[in-house]
């Protein structure tokens, strides 16, 4: 009897600790998860933008999920410039054809992939965008060419609802 006692005691304590730890973990999760995007934020999926008034060579900026989205109607030169770049010259190789399904329209998040600033339009060494925060240069397809940013500006999910309306998200 006395030989068995310590074993049962040990089991009891281990079980209490283990079950207690599970509970602490279960209680911690809601406290962490409450900081994640809530149901109403997640529900705000898409924005529709009327682009009929945008002239070639102009960019409009719209807000989607709290971030600026650049919608640029590119000129013919810009398109050919973007499409003539060799893949090996790119830091983050992506074809312009994949980034702009309709070559005239470039839709991308106006957020520098370095640390999140908004790049300036028609600036920089590659006729595209230039981020004033830490000097990243983007080309006419929004691809990173020079500077600290690691990636091209992100193209969100979007579609043309009709000839004049783009639905982002």
């Amino acid at each position: 009897m006395s030989d068995k006692k310590p074993k049962r005691r040990e089991f009891l304590f281990t079980a209490s600790y283990a079950v207690g730890a599970v509970g602490v973990g279960a209680v911690t999760w809601p406290l962490i998860d409450q900081m994640n995007p809530d149901a109403s934020v997640k529900a705000l999926a898409s924005t529709e933008v009327d682009v009929s008034s945008v002239k070639p060579g102009n960019t409009i900026t719209v807000l989607w999920r709290g971030k600026p989205v650049f919608i640029r109607r590119r000129t013919q030169e810009e398109i050919s410039e973007a499409r003539s770049v060799k893949m090996e010259d790119l830091i983050h190789p992506e074809k312009d054809e994949d980034r702009a399904k309709n070559p005239e329209w470039l839709v991308m998040l106006g957020v520098c992939t370095h640390l999140g600033c908004v790049p300036l339009n028609d600036k920089g060494d590659y006729d595209g965008w230039f981020c004033p925060c830490h000097g990243s240069h983007y080309d006419t397809s929004g691809r990173i060419r020079k500077g600290p940013a690691p990636l091209n500006m992100e193209v969100p999910k979007y579609e043309f609802v009709n000839a004049n309306t783009i639905k982002i998200g």
Binding site: R9, L12, F13, A15, S16, V19, G20, V22, G23, A26
Partner: peptide, 16 residues
């Protein structure tokens, strides 16, 4: 249910 199980475990631990 969880609390009851833990209470029982802790009760016997306490007795021990």
């Amino acid at each position: 249910i969880y609390l009851i199980i833990l209470t029982v475990l802790v009760y016997f631990s306490m007795k021990k």
